[in-house]
């Protein structure tokens, strides 16, 4: 009886925290179907925002730039970060801890300070704020996360396998791609996904480094918070959220099935 109560209590607690986390998302989804443009009145059900969103150029350009910046910055960060992790992993103790210490800075520093510092750099070097400066800034705050994802995998890999490949006549490049990369690939992939996600959702650093010429979804939303957010934005966000949600559930189910197979085989 006590155990059952405890179990129920745990479920209830999970449920309440879940409600807290999902309540605003639920509100946004409801707003995307609201006929009234006012965000506090319900004017009846409509799907018109889902069709008018396709003809809203500002939103599409912002979406395009957001995605391009996220993909590019994540790719560059993954390349730079993976190479760095391999190098740092082979460093002696002192340079290694210096490098890792500096790597920690963008992760632990206040985003507002990172944003300001990059803005000062760009303005002082005469770079015009815009797409390129946002891209550079996103790479700057993304690389550390890639390094942090790849490092543990590198430490788990056995160096002898790489050396064995060389002994058997592989070139270093071949040995790297055939032996080392498959071992660290999960870390590289999760680093990429993490970088992509962080870039997609960033507001503060983009706010300081974008100038007036480029908008991401976040900065567009921020500029609309005062005068009221366009319902098309709710529609687009709902669409993005639901597709990622469904995708993750599918991936998760597939992963669970594979685990079961593995368990059955062993």
């Amino acid at each position: 009886m006590y155990c059952k109560m405890k179990h129920f209590g745990q479920k209830l607690y999970l449920g309440i925290v879940m409600l807290f986390l999902y309540a605003p998302i639920f509100v946004l989804i409801v707003l995307s179907f609201n006929r009234s443009k006012s965000r506090s009145k319900w004017g009846g059900f409509t799907t018109k925002w889902y069709s008018s969103m396709f003809s809203d150029d500002t939103i599409w350009i912002a979406l395009r730039d957001t995605l391009v910046i996220a993909v590019l910055s994540a790719l560059i960060a993954t390349l730079l970060g993976t190479l760095a992790a391999i190098g740092i992993n082979r460093m002696r103790k002192l340079p290694r801890s210096v490098m890792l210490g500096i790597t920690n800075i963008p992760m632990l520093n206040a985003e507002i300070v990172t944003g300001i510092s990059l803005m000062l750099l760009f303005l002082a070097t005469g770079l015009e704020l815009g797409f390129a400066t946002v891209l550079l800034s996103h790479v700057a705050f993304n690389v550390p996360y890639v390094i942090l994802s790849v490092m543990p995998k590198l430490q788990q890999t056995n160096r002898s396998t790489y050396e064995a490949a060389l002994d058997l006549g592989a070139t270093p490049a071949k040995a790297f791609f055939l032996v080392v990369l498959p071992d660290i690939f999960p870390g590289v992939l999760s680093g990429f996904l993490l970088a992509f996600t962080l870039s997609l959702d960033d507001f503060i650093i983009t706010h300081f480094t974008r100038g007036a010429s480029v908008n991401t979804l976040s900065t567009l939303i921020y500029s609309e918070t005062r005068k009221g957010i366009k319902p098309e934005m709710y529609a687009l966000s709902t669409l993005l959220f639901v597709s990622v949600f469904v995708l993750l559930i599918i991936v998760n189910r597939a992963g669970a099935k594979q685990d079961k197979k593995k368990a059955a085989l062993s």
């Binding site: 605003p24 946004l28 996600t197 976040s218 939303i221 921020y222 993005l240």
Partner: peptide, 22 residues
């Protein structure tokens, strides 16, 4: 655990705006 991370896929500014509504 995934369910607890999922909300981050809705733009964080929009979620704060939604709290304003609430």
């Amino acid at each position: 655990v995934m369910l607890f991370i999922m909300p981050m896929w809705m733009n964080s500014l929009l979620r704060i705006v939604a709290w304003q509504n609430i």
